[in-house]
Design a protein around this nucleic acid. Structure first.
Length: 129
DNA sequence: CTTCTGACA
DNA sequence: TGTCAGTA
């Protein structure tokens, strides 16, 4: 399920093909790029190259527009989507430090050990997990 | 022949 | 958004 995503993100379609697949004019496709709604790659000759994901996005943009949403609104939708995605990755890719692990284990041990307040105090100041 | 940037009767 | 110009 990773090879498939790779292919969908490969930018290999020239604007002419994109025009036929989306029924959008070159003017519109370039304009949406100016509005940061799509960011196609560029070939060595400075030609825009789109991926299948770009096609989906352009089609989606066209739908949003038909629903009466303006450029700013669509930009906001994508910006918000990126913000939430970055938020999730930040939490998933933040490994616990040894210090965090030791603190968690210690607190959990104290919680179930039945130690008195005085014992807990001694424990916290003598152990070196 | 296709695409690019810039501009606007 | 369309379209024309002058390029690459």
């Amino acid at each position: 399920m990773k090879e498939k995503e790779l292919r969908r993100s490969l930018a290999v379609l020239p604007i002419g093909t994109v025009m036929k697949l989306t029924n959008l004019s070159a003017r519109q496709i370039r304009y949406y790029e100016e509005q940061q709604l799509v960011m196609p790659k560029r070939s060595e000759g400075n030609r825009r190259m789109y991926s299948l994901n770009d096609i989906d996005r352009l089609l989606e943009i066209k739908d949003f527009l038909d629903e009466g949403i303006n450029m700013a609104g669509i930009k906001h939708i994508y910006d918000e989507k990126e913000r939430k995605l970055a938020e999730k990755q930040a939490k998933l890719e933040k490994p616990l430090t040894d210090k965090d692990v030791r603190r968690i284990l210690r607190d959990e041990f104290i919680a179930v050990s039945g130690l008195s307040k005085q014992d807990e105090f001694s424990f916290k100041h003598n152990n070196n997990f």
